[in-house]
Design a protein around this nucleic acid. Structure first.
Lengths: 224, 224
DNA sequence: GAAATAGTGTCTTTAAGACACTATTAT
DNA sequence: ATAATAGTGTCTTAAAGACACTATTTC
């Protein structure tokens, strides 16, 4: 019955040079040894509380990253996707600010732009595309992109992040209205982003209720 | 490694007496023998092309139903959800008109209202809730509820179906504008629903492009 | 002061909803 | 004709976007 191979794969996304990038690693073992692929691995029934825990463990082990936002994407399956046999991959996606990868990430993590990816093993290209599509779609009506920013950020910066993710310009007034009525951000008292030859911008952070969660319910952060 | 139990479960939903109902079956074997539960079963690596195929096969075998709309919901997992051991359930949801269950469905299929369900085995209650939540959410911006209607239906009927699913009244003018601009329905030439003591309503059907698909991409049917 | 971007007030445009009116059937 | 619901035209309200103006910094 169970010659089924059970794995998790994680699409770790970040914004680098204003473009979505995905974290890839060279595979240490066959199949596809030496090829860039998504971080992933077997579910460990002995130690994992569920597949989400397996994804957290795998992401930490392979990349060194603990992502505050990690959500299940979909399950991919079939006899052909893995040459070892009939397999299941429960895929997750995570969003982190780029500097986190630089600071906590293992040095061999490679960031590739999600556009024009090619030659990924297994069905990893399809998984990445599904993740990007989910993130784009969800960003259009939620506060997802805040997880691509660091702890503190300005509204102009957050707007630029939205625009990079959505791939289109965003109306400034509407954007600020929306963010305001979402009620998820708070200004950091007295903290301004100075240094540039213009009026300094107020720094904001996620309100406490929304920080430091490994996973968030849809309703918690969405407008509607 | 793989003492992991791999199954699919299907949340088959229909509209009965203007309320969402889920199809349940009494389990034939332990665990929970004789208890009402979601139709589900093991993935057969020898014959299933993927988990979607496993869901189609399982739904057909257990209930006799072939649902035009069948979509992956999420994957549930862990050591405790099935007393037999660490298990994975890749869950799917399907929408069918009630008469299809009466005509093609096995006689032992039971329809229970999704509100106030209790005593479902495994984590099936959680799975049903996730499915209902997904359907409600998706119905608010897509044409999903047409799959709860039969082949031909009137716009007032479709509106009532939307209202039943969403649990709130829908503005008639806006509703018709939206359906019109979705462009997924076509009037059935000369077919009116007569018999009632009022002006007869035009009958509509899904346009050919949207009929008879086992699964539809999100983009195919959604407005935005 | 000039240049640059932050932040806001307000008008315009567009979408959603309310309301009312006409249309067509059975009785 | 009356009752009942289908179907549509149009006004109102609310949300989204455009535009312009003020604010605050560096040089």
């Amino acid at each position: 019955m169970s010659e089924i191979i059970c794995t998790v794969d994680i699409v770790l996304l970040t914004l680098k040079e204003e473009c979505l990038h995905v974290a890839l690693l060279r595979r240490e073992h066959e199949p596809f040894k030496g090829v860039l692929a998504l971080p992933g691995g077997y579910i460990h029934a002995e130690e994992d509380a569920d597949t989400h825990a397996a994804a957290v463990r795998t992401l930490q082990a392979k990349t060194g990253i603990a992502s505050p936002y990690l959500e299940q994407l979909a399950t991919f399956s079939g006899p052909g996707r893995d040459p070892r046999g009939w397999s299941i991959s429960i895929s997750y996606y995570a969003l982190v600010p780029e500097n986190l990868i630089g600071e906590a990430g293992h040095p061999h993590v490679e960031l590739l732009p999600v556009e024009r990816l090619k030659g990924l093993p297994f069905d990893h290209l399809q998984i990445v595309e599904a993740a990007v599509s989910r993130v784009r779609n969800k960003s259009s009506y939620s506060s997802l992109p805040v997880y691509l920013c660091g702890e503190a950020f300005t509204l102009p910066r957050l707007q630029a992040v939205y625009e990079a993710v959505l791939g289109e310009p965003v109306n400034k007034v509407s954007f600020r209205r929306k963010i305001d009525e979402l009620g998820i951000l708070e200004p950091i008292e007295g903290a301004l982003e100075t240094g540039k030859a213009n009026r300094p911008a107020q720094l904001y952070r996620l309100r406490k209720e929304y920080r430091d969660r490994l996973s968030l319910t849809d309703r918690a952060l969405n407008a509607r």
